[in-house]
Structure formats: structure tokens, C-alpha cells
């Protein structure tokens, strides 16, 4: 694809770049990891050939335990369902990684490029638990939601997959068409804490 083509992330219209550095005091920090490669991977977790193929292609074992995640140099993998994973790769590598998966996998599997369908938001900060408690009914206590866990749940009136990166950092996978709503929600819900865009 031509380099002159300008890609626009789902939150392009919010012009987050222009808000960077506007406030540094916020209890909530937001960053959009935009334009990454997102692949939806389907397969049978009981199929050892499938597991081996994925490991070879992505350099890390597929997380098969419910709500688990894994990370390699190439990809971050989130468990979505017993037969479904989200593979997030660097921007622009999605086509190659998809081809690689297809070449390593046999039998019944599926890969769909959904890079345009969603974006990855990173929320952190000292007041992040307050914002998350307003947004989701899931128990955020570290015993129930440890670092590295990923859950598919409701986020305000839409849905999200939420990965905990550390005690006060969460990554949210949100759908493109709902991203403006999520952005409005985050602004509203962080009002009492202050919002910093990075």
C-alpha cells in the first residue's frame, strides 16, 4: 500500500495528539495504541498440531486457560473464548503474520484480519480503579483480576476486552464504531480525577 495513504485510527477525530501534554496532573492517563495489527484466530485448543503451529508462527504458546494472555516479541495474544484468540501485532505486520499463521496451520482453523475493526486503549493512573468501577461490573480486586488476565465484559453501555498490565494499568480493546462513545465515557468518568492524554 502506498506510503502516501493516510490511515485514520478509530479515534482520529478526537485529535488526541493535540491533547498530549495539556494536563499532567490527572489521576487517569489515556493512551491510544493506534493502528496496530489485530488478528482474530480460531481453532481447536485440544488439537496439538494447531497449538504447535501457532507456537511456531508466533513464538509463544497459545494461552488456553480461560481469560489468560501471552506475549512474544512478535505478538500479544488474548484468550477470548475456548476456541478464539485475539493476536495483536505491530502496525503493518498483520498481513505477514496472517500468512505465516496460514502456512503453519493445518486442519480446522480460521484467521480474520480485523485491524480496522478495533483499537487498543491503555488506561492507567492512581485513580484508575475508580474509573474502572464506574465502567464495568467485574471485580477488579487483584485476587479476582490478576495481572495478565483478560476478560470480555461490559464497559459502560458497550463491550470491551480488558487486559490488566499491572495493578493500575489496563488495556481495553474496543470496537471502532463504539470508540467515540468510549472516549466520551472516559472523559465524563474521569472528570473528578483529571484526565491526562499521553
Amino acid at each position: 500500500m502506498s506510503k502516501s495513504i493516510q490511515a485514520e485510527s478509530p479515534l482520529h477525530h478526537a485529535q488526541l495528539e493535540q491533547l498530549i501534554g495539556q494536563s499532567s496532573e490527572g489521576g487517569i492517563t489515556l493512551h491510544e495504541h493506534k493502528l496496530l495489527g489485530h488478528l482474530n484466530l480460531r481453532g481447536n485448543a485440544a488439537d496439538t498440531a494447531f497449538l504447535a503451529g501457532v507456537q511456531e508462527a508466533l513464538g509463544v504458546a497459545l494461552p488456553t486457560a480461560p481469560c489468560s494472555s501471552a506475549k512474544s516479541e512478535l505478538a500479544q495474544i488474548m484468550w477470548l473464548a475456548p476456541d478464539e484468540w485475539l493476536v495483536i501485532v505491530e502496525s503493518g505486520t498483520e498481513f505477514d503474520v496472517e500468512q505465516k499463521l496460514r502456512s503453519y496451520l493445518t486442519g480446522h482453523f480460521a484467521v480474520s484480519d480485523i485491524s480496522g475493526a478495533q483499537t487498543l486503549l491503555e488506561l492507567s493512573g492512581k485513580d484508575i480503579i475508580g474509573l474502572m468501577k464506574k465502567s464495568t461490573g467485574y471485580d477488579l480486586h487483584l485476587e479476582s483480576f490478576p495481572v495478565g488476565k483478560v476478560i470480555g465484559t461490559t464497559f459502560a453501555k458497550t463491550g470491551a476486552h480488558i487486559l490488566r498490565l499491572d495493578e493500575n494499568t489496563f488495556q481495553l480493546v474496543v470496537r471502532r464504531s463504539f470508540s467515540d462513545y468510549v472516549w466520551l465515557w472516559i472523559q465524563q468518568s474521569s472528570q473528578e480525577y483529571g484526565l491526562t492524554i499521553v
Binding site: 480460531r42 476456541d83 480474520s112 480485523i114 475493526a117 478495533q118 471502532r176
Partner: peptide
């Protein structure tokens, strides 16, 4: 039946 369904609604303009 060996088949998978994935939504790609938001992926395409």
C-alpha cells in the same frame, strides 16, 4: 460442522 464465524463489520469501510 467445521466452521467458524467472526464479525468483521467494523473492519471494513
Amino acid at each position: 460442522l467445521e466452521v467458524y464465524f467472526s464479525t468483521v463489520t467494523d473492519h471494513w469501510s
